[in-house]
Every structure is written in C-alpha cells, then in structure tokens.
Design a protein around this nucleic acid. Structure first.
Length: 284
DNA sequence: CACCATGTTCCTTG
DNA sequence: CCAAGGAACATGGT
C-alpha cells in the first residue's frame, strides 16, 4: 500500500487512535523487521511509553513517544514496504498470521503486520536524513526540481523514484504524474525543458493530492480498501474494481485504451520496474 | 510451474 | 569515484 498518499491517509486515521495510549505490553514476532534495533532494545525503550504524535515523512511514519520514567522522547520509524499494514483493533480475536509487532494498550492493540516482510518498524531514524523535500510542501520549488533534474541522464520516470530527490513518490504515481504532464517516461531527466518541468511539478502535486482525497473519502468497507479502524490497504484487484480503474489513468492498464486518446496503454520495464504510459499522449 | 507485485538496500559492473 | 543495473529480501496472487 505504500506511497505517499496511502501513508498520509493511514497516518491521519491512525493518529487519533494512538495519541495518549500507553504501551502496557509489546510482542515482537518478527524481530527482523526491527533491524537494526534488537527486539530486546525495542521492548526496553518502548514498554511503558506513551504515544504522543504521529506524522509522515515521505513514505515513512514517524511516531513520537514519551517515557515518563526517563522524561525523554523517543522517535519510532515505520515503513510499510510493499505489503505492510498497521491498525488499531479491540484486543479480542486472534492475530493475523503475519503479525510482526503487537502493542497492547488497555482494551485495544496496535498491530503491524507484513506478509512479505519488506516493511520496517525501528528506533533507527537515520533514513530520514537522506530524504528530499516533500512534494506537497513549500520546499519543493520549481527551481530546486529543475536543478536536480539537470544533472542526470536517467530516464525521468526512474528519477522520480529517487527518494533523495523527492520524498514519497513510488511506482504508481510516477507513471500517473508523467501521464498527466504529457511527458515520456523515457526522457532523460536533463532533457526536460523548463516548460515540461513546469508541468510535471504541479502534475505530481495534483496526482498525490487527489490520491489522498480519494483514500480519505472512499467507503471504508470495500475489500482491499480502507477499514473503519484505520487500516488502509489497497491491492490491485483486476478490472472488477471500478473505483480503482477510475482512479488511475495508466498504471496497470497495459493494452487498455488511453482515457484521453484511446490508443493502447503501453508497459515497459525501467530499472527492473514496470512503467505504464500512453505513447501518443506522452511522445518525446 | 512461471511471472508479477505499491519498496529499499547492497553488490557488481562499466 | 560515480552511475546504472540487477539481485536479494519473502510471500502470495494470477
């Protein structure tokens, strides 16, 4: 589920459910996902601590906790990888098969589960320092963007995935924003004209903003959608999912007609990841 | 069985 | 030294 918009929606749903909750017990079932923090260290620091704030940075969730005993604050960093999920539930019922970490409160528990195990929940916050500006923030200026692209021969699609350039853009919204801007994903970054950069920047912002809106307004009981308890997860659900189709213009739509011109959407592989685009609307 | 998957990191190659 | 490409990570869906 993990690009900026999905993480943003998750954070908004989760924050009110966590704030003020004190960790009474903590179970680490897949210590590997805490690395480089050890399970022992993780428990030592967090049991007894109280969740204060939850924010997002790029695709990361940033939790702050307060420990009364040490009168200090702790930052906890979360990342969903490809299949991570986080949610608060009543303490009843059994845990899912892939539950990695379980925080117990009074009558509820906060669960981090991850099927593939590419996600992370750790006390190591160093990954934050390597992130570029937030694409929806003030620091993501046209000048900064244009300058960063100027030096690189990498295809623009690949460049958009570079988290040190912009934080939070993933494979889906990279394709989507290029379609909206009418720019070929193959175009070397340094070849973008100032006019194209001028279109790409607002396209990125629009696509991300719309996705946040969509994620925040969709009925919360759809399969693979958002659940009322703050769980958010989407999976590709073939063509049967109408809302998913409406939401994305090119991603995962290989051979389907372009929503703008009708010619078939093409799929190519760049940096070993799928890119989708309309060869007619995104020439050059 | 084969191929694909929203991400990041590490290693190799040029 | 740097950039680019690919594998690895681990599991499930189609």
């Amino acid at each position: 589920m993990p690009e900026l918009p999905e993480v943003e929606v998750l954070v908004r749903n989760l924050a009110p459910l966590l704030e003020g909750k004190t960790i009474r017990a903590l179970e680490v079932r897949r210590p590997r996902l805490l690395r480089p923090t050890s399970g022992r260290e993780f428990r030592r620091v967090l049991v007894g601590s109280t969740f204060r704030t939850l924010t997002r940075r790029g695709k990361y969730l940033v939790f702050t906790l307060e420990n009364p005993g040490r009168s200090s604050t702790t930052r906890l960093l979360g990342h969903l990888g490809m299949t991570g999920r986080m949610y608060v539930r009543p303490e009843t019922g059994r845990l899912p098969k892939h539950a990695a970490v379980v925080f117990s409160f009074h009558r509820t528990r906060f669960v981090f589960e991850d099927v593939r195990g590419f996600g992370r929940l750790t006390l190591d916050t160093t990954p934050l320092s390597g992130l570029g500006p937030e694409p929806l923030g003030e620091l993501f200026g046209l000048e900064h963007f244009a300058t960063a692209l100027k030096g690189s021969a990498q295809p623009i699609k690949v460049k958009l995935l570079d988290q040190s350039l912009i934080a939070g853009v993933g494979n889906i919204y990279a394709s989507e924003s290029l379609f909206r801007a009418g720019i070929s994903p193959r175009l070397p970054s340094r070849r973008l004209t100032i006019k194209q950069v001028g279109r790409l920047r607002p396209s990125l912002r629009k696509v991300l903003t719309k996705a946040i809106e969509w994620g925040s307004t969709v009925p919360m009981d759809r399969a693979g959608g958002v659940k009322a308890d703050g769980l958010f997860c989407y999976r590709r659900t073939a063509g049967s999912d109408a809302s998913f189709a409406e939401r994305l213009w090119v991603y995962d739509r290989e051979d389907q007609p372009c929503v703008r011109c009708g010619s078939p959407v093409r799929r190519i592989v760049q940096a070993s990841r799928s890119t989708y685009y309309c060869p007619r609307c995104q020439h050059v």
